[in-house]
Design a protein around this nucleic acid. Sequence first.
DNA 1: TAACCTACCAAACACTTGTTAGGGAAGGAT
DNA 2: ATCCTTCCCTAACAAGTGTTTGGTAGGTTA
Lengths: 210, 210
Amino acid sequence: MTDNGPVPNSKKTATERPAPERRGELLATAAEVFAAHGYNATTVRRIADEAGLLAGSLYYHFDSKESMLDEILSTFLDELWDGYDAVLAARLGPRETLEALVTESFREIDRHRPAVAIYQRESRHLALQPRFAYLAESQRRFEQAWLGTLRRGAAAGVFRADLDVRLAYRFVRDTVWVAASWYRPGGAHSPEEIARQYLSMVLEGIAVRE
Amino acid sequence: MTDNGPVPNSKKTATERPAPERRGELLATAAEVFAAHGYNATTVRRIADEAGLLAGSLYYHFDSKESMLDEILSTFLDELWDGYDAVLAARLGPRETLEALVTESFREIDRHRPAVAIYQRESRHLALQPRFAYLAESQRRFEQAWLGTLRRGAAAGVFRADLDVRLAYRFVRDTVWVAASWYRPGGAHSPEEIARQYLSMVLEGIAVRE
DNA sequence: TAACCTACCAAACACTTGTTAGGGAAGGAT
DNA sequence: ATCCTTCCCTAACAAGTGTTTGGTAGGTTA
């Protein structure tokens, strides 16, 4: 297990010098299969089949099946937090912040649909493993961002104060992210259009006002 | 493989003559483990451990690991549709039907939380297998009931007509059922209380009206 | 007492799993 | 022509998988 020179599967820097785009292709197909059948139910042979090579050959590019999962999830979360942090740094009002977060979320679903689906399905038990501790950390920041926004809005009289904030948080969070389970890019609606309609439902409700 | 008399694992009748309640206990623990770690990631030895017997002994009660899953899901769906059919048979107005369906759903989550979690996680790919074809059938009826109610409501002027009905359907459906992933019986809120708050959010929205 | 049934154990089975070791073809650099 | 790097294949490994077979302790029935 000695480090014998510059092997392509160094660690987890997505941007490498010689630009191994094959690696990206393999990760994309792996993510697709993971999302479709679940991580545990996916065999490395299945991934290899889908990618057009043999199972053992995957280990030229990656350390292990788990490291593929790791790279898929961490890449997604890094990009997600880039977007979220930009929104939060703008220090908009509660309602505008919520709108921006939801819109940003649907954009991420559009870009990283398989990763989001995997995250939804596996993050809970993965977060217990030390290797995936960043999932728990991410969930913590997640809750903080959304709950804070909702609390600010309730205090400012923008959001209803008669609701259980924690329940509302789960409501909004789940509402947004489960969309990854049915969303297909290139469908009838753009991410922004879906975000608009979701926001309209979450904020105004589906009932007609008298 | 000849049928040698009245073995306890006959088929799938949950109510048997000699009342083998041990079977129910084993199914309950199996459901719990399936829900916590996923079906594929769960080994029969793990289930046996949790239940306090050895892996092979499970096969005295059940034909296979898959038949356990089958019985868990079909039992849940049978009971779910008992409740749904009662609601639909009452032929209430669109809004009252939606309220009743949501409330009934949260009651089912309260009663069958592990089964609901398993269903959420595995139904999509399970439905492709012939053995679990009833999952696809159930989903079809599901969509029909919810979509029909929403359409009736939009036509009657009870629900907003400016929304994509199919999007609203997914919105309501997902909003309700993902609750199974975090709901814990005996928590702060009763199923009815959660249903009330969810309905309030879905119908009226979380924004304050000016 | 003898036969029987229930619910389990002990030990193995065939198979699939992720992973590794060694090798080799193609092509650019020297 | 030689070397090196990249990318893949072949063939196997050990561990873990769902499942089966035969046996048995303890209670119930005849």
